[in-house]
């Protein structure tokens, strides 16, 4: 578990539009890496290329290298479905499956990939819900609809669902942007616990959040609207927020633009 990601010279396109240019960075195992930057700078796009999720959008493709512990995820013969089994994802809005119960939501990844063993499923569901700090709140109503939970609980349910398949890496695309402050705190605490077992990459618009939860921070920027987004710098979070190497980073951090 917990693997390292090397991104080398990544370009991402949506049809003829280049969204991201020349991104190279390293995501260390068992750390939380935050992607920050103004809207449209390509941070979510880069995140989605890490598990080949951007390919779901028609016309989207990427060139360059993304390696998971040395294995090129874009190499010939690599199955994107297999990639996503190793690299899970949590989305901006909680999206539990509405046709499924709380239990079924967490069990979905295993069950739909062929696990039938009831005992194994029970254990996985409990372990995942415990890890997601949701077990005590839902253990008596596992057969209720996943959508019956509050927004914050739904997002933790989605995190439980994502870690139930034991991925090596967990990608989070603004996981708190649809949550209230208390739920946000719960998810942030959870992220701190998750990094003991997983490599976590989180995209956030909230700089306080980046400084609270992350060990390393990558700052993305774009020169102008319609130009591709680029990585400005990546460093330890403390350094980025106290003494960044680039002027653009400092301007953004201190709120002079963006």
């Amino acid at each position: 578990m917990a693997k390292r990601i090397d991104v080398e010279n990544l370009d991402v396109y949506y049809g003829s539009f280049q969204a991201v240019a020349g991104v190279s960075l390293v995501v260390e195992p068992r750390t939380v890496t935050a992607f920050i930057g103004p809207s449209g700078c390509g941070k979510s796009t880069v995140l989605r290329t890490l598990n080949r999720m951007h390919e779901v959008i028609p016309g989207a493709y990427a060139t360059g290298k993304v390696e998971l512990d040395g294995v090129d995820l874009y190499g010939p013969g690599v199955d994107p479905v297999a990639v996503r089994r190793l690299i899970g994802m949590v989305f901006q809005r909680p999206n539990p499956f509405p046709s499924m119960t709380i239990y079924d939501n967490v069990a979905a990844g295993l069950r739909l990939n062929g696990t039938r063993n009831k005992k194994e499923l029970d254990e996985t569901v409990e372990r995942s819900l415990v890890s997601a700090n949701l077990w005590n709140e839902v253990k008596d109503r596992l057969s209720r609809a996943g959508t019956s939970l509050s927004g914050g609980q739904q997002q933790r349910l989605c995190i439980a669902r994502a870690i139930a398949v034991k991925p090596d890496v967990l990608l989070m695309d603004e996981p708190c942007s649809a949550l209230d402050p208390i739920s946000t705190l719960a998810v942030e605490d959870l992220i701190q616990e998750l990094k003991e077992q997983y490599t976590v990459v989180i995209v956030t618009h909230n700089m306080q959040q980046a400084s609270r939860v992350s060990d390393r921070t990558a700052f993305f920027n774009l020169e102008a609207q319609g130009k591709p987004g680029r990585l400005v710098e990546i460093d330890a979070t403390e350094t980025i927020f106290s003494n960044p190497a680039k002027k653009a980073t400092e301007d953004y951090i201190t709120g002079r633009f963006g």
Binding site: N51, M53, V56, V81, A82, R84, R85, L86, G88, M89, F91, N95, P96, F97, A108, G109, L112, N113, C158, R161, A162, V165
Partner: peptide, 9 residues
């Protein structure tokens, strides 16, 4: 659909 793909389904 994306949530499902993200689980490797």
């Amino acid at each position: 659909r994306e949530a499902s793909y993200a689980l490797g389904i």
